[in-house]
Design a protein around this nucleic acid. Structure first.
Lengths: 232, 232
DNA sequence: GAGTGGTCTAGACCACTGT
DNA sequence: CAGTGGTCTAGACCACTCC
């Protein structure tokens, strides 16, 4: 006799097993929550919790009235952790340094106004800085911060404070988007990172918001050799 | 008077607002679930659901007995969807084509044997292929498949079948790792992708396993301009 | 219209862990 | 040991959407 199925993790394990053993095949509709709860001898809420977890992982598709089906093309999902740059460097046992290159209050260009969804008249603080690992350029940071959303920033001394860390501590965000790409180092980036012109560099662009209010947009240009790694 | 707080999304919104407005500052312990439920006039389970969601996003740290505190260094997590290449192209409304370039059964080089954690004597099927979008090179696929783990592959006609899709349908995996980087196109890649030598290209390397058994390792070299995008 | 998942409630007990 | 989050239950109503 099999073990009892009581916790939502038990239900999840059972469901995953049936998918892997093809008891429920891709495209199949599985029994509804009420029936599964009866079968497993637990409450419907427990089944619901388990199925939501499996659906989050991409293996099930759920729709009201239509029911729950095994995904035909399970889209695998990788979770990337986005560390503070200081932590990223120090966790590798390297020495971290930060250098401000330039700071300026500006009116946004049209493209930036659109990307950050700014209202007319909102100004930006533009920061350029370099993060170093063991004394060598690691990543060049080109950042815009919305002064309307985070007014305290104008009083911060950016020689002493690192925007990456200051914002994490003082302006938490609820939503954001992030993009990864490859590009050729331009003149400015090549000089700052101390690499030949047109060297292939890894680029991360990130925008963050708190409750529809734009906070910041940053473009990180990594020195050659940087790899972003995770498990699936 | 403010709107009632009934749903867990309402609670989440309220909590995020208090974090943003620094009513609750990084490091602070927030009231326990029972008190919050009383304050909001909802059930404790509703508060729990909301706080779990916020904690999942990294903004809160929760521990039994210790309580819930606002994260000091929120490590944000981004979830990347890893689509089948055909879907990635067709979802953009482009026409998908696949072309096999080369296939070969080989003994692994030492570095590949290490990366795929192969036993001595295990052979690999080496495939090179190109995926095209609207007739233009989109991504060059350089793939090794472990013949010991997936013996059926030797009988597959790779002129007609696309390894990316065949493996998804026939060789589910339990674990994997994935790395993103930027590189300069070498002679082979430049010719296949039809770009100048040393063009900056986006590279994805992925290995997958099923229960400790290596299945496949693939290196995807994208044509210039490719961006990987997601929300945080 | 009817069937399904989404969520809320009130109460209960459990599991972990700081003190 | 005691306080907190983690989870289960049984029942209820709602929201969406397929037929």
């Amino acid at each position: 006799m099999q073990d009892a199925i009581n916790t939502w993790q038990d239900v999840q394990r059972e469901v995953l097993g049936r998918i892997q053993n093809r008891v429920w095949k891709p495209g199949d509709i599985i029994p509804n929550e009420v029936d599964l709860a009866k079968e497993f001898g637990c409450a419907r809420a427990t089944v619901n919790r388990a199925l939501q977890a499996v659906a989050d992982s991409g293996l099930l598709d759920r729709r009201r009235k239509a029911g729950t089906r095994v995904a035909v093309n399970p889209v695998r999902k990788a979770t990337l952790e986005i560390p503070i740059i200081r932590q990223e460097i120090e966790q590798r046992g390297q020495h971290y340094q930060y250098a401000l290159i330039e700071q300026q209050v500006t009116d946004p260009q049209a493209d930036m106004q659109a990307m950050m969804k700014l209202s007319d008249g909102q100004q930006l603080l533009h920061l350029k800085a370099l993060h170093l690992a063991d004394g060598l350029p690691h990543v060049y940071e080109d950042r815009w911060i919305n002064i309307s959303t985070v007014p305290e920033i104008v009083a911060v001394d950016w020689q002493q404070n690192n925007a990456n860390e200051w914002l994490v501590a003082h302006a938490p965000f609820s939503d954001g988007d992030i993009a990864f790409s490859a590009g050729a180092a331009g003149a400015v980036e090549a000089e700052i990172l101390n690499v030949p012109l047109n060297t292939a560099v890894f680029i991360i662009e990130r925008s963050t918001w708190m409750m529809q209010q734009s906070i910041t947009r940053v473009r990180l240009t990594y020195a050659p050799g940087h790899r972003l790694h995770t498990t699936i």
